[in-house]
């Protein structure tokens, strides 16, 4: 499904990713853990296509297509989804406008008919209900006045609506209390399936107790330095990241 080969990327001229190799098969959930500054968020932005992140080497293939050649919106339409560490507040644009515009753009790209207002409302209400989000939240301006947990649930609602083939969850646990974390994790787990892969990026093992990965990788200073099964997360929780060295050593 997703194949990352020897990926190098720079931000403001500074090399952050120094040769990432990663293959994710359909239905697999991979976790990437690592210390602060290891390049975790850079990797998620590079995959999602954010401006300002320059790929200087390597390749990323998504469902056989060159992902790096696509604009951010094209990647989303192809089925790549990034759940943000800090979902953005957009005053003046309602959640429904935002999602209807997004969903219809994506459907158009996928050769599906666009939904009219009634079809859209029916769909979003059903999806929101399963995430314990009320009508009021879906009508308000995007993320404006939302609590941390509400913002993350809103991101998961977007994921449920857009039905991506590959989702990146960037530090989804940050800023969440345990109840909010469970709600978000339940939402994510309900979206797991044989055709949908996920990349869960996190600093802490905590999230992985709720979203249980198939594979765990350690990213340190721009490279994947170790890979293993879900037990690797527990080991990291116990030992910390110290053994993976410092930026100077990398």
């Amino acid at each position: 499904m997703l194949e990352i080969k020897n990926l190098h990327a720079t931000v403001d001229g500074k090399e952050i990713l120094k040769g990432i190799n990663l293959t994710i098969n359909p239905g697999e959930v991979h976790a990437i853990m690592g210390p602060n500054g290891s390049g975790k968020s850079t990797l998620s932005y590079v995959l999602a296509g954010r401006d300002g992140y320059e790929v200087t080497g390597g390749s990323v293939t998504f469902q056989g297509k060159d992902l790096l050649a696509m604009e951010a919106e094209e990647r989303a339409a192809e089925g790549v989804f990034l759940a943000f560490q800090y979902p953005v507040e957009i005053p003046g644009v309602s959640n429904t406008t935002f999602l209807k515009t997004a969903l219809n753009a994506v459907r158009k790209h996928r050769g599906l008919p666009e939904l009219d207002a009634m079809q859209f409302l029916k769909l979003i209400r059903a999806k929101a209900k399963s995430l314990n989000m009320n009508d009021d939240m879906i009508k308000r301006a995007v993320n404006v006045g939302f609590s941390g947990g509400e913002k993350k649930r809103n991101d998961i609602l977007q994921m449920a609506m857009l039905e991506p083939g590959f989702a990146i969850l960037d530090e989804t646990d940050s800023g969440l209390d345990i109840d909010a974390l469970k709600l978000v994790a339940d939402g994510v787990n309900s979206l797991r399936g044989p055709e949908r892969s996920m990349l869960v990026i996190t600093h802490y093992q905590r999230l992985l107790s709720y979203i249980v990965p198939d594979h765990v990788h350690v990213l340190a200073y721009g490279k994947i330095v170790r890979s293993g099964g879900k037990e690797l997360a527990l080991e990291l929780e116990a030992k910390g990241y110290a053994e993976f060295g410092s930026p100077e050593a990398a």
Binding site: G49, E73, A76, V88, A102, L103, H109
Partner: peptide, 14 residues
């Protein structure tokens, strides 16, 4: 707002 612009584009909006 560049963040808002990217957020919208990351959801498939041209």
């Amino acid at each position: 707002d560049e963040d808002a612009l990217f957020y919208l584009r990351a959801r498939g909006i041209p």
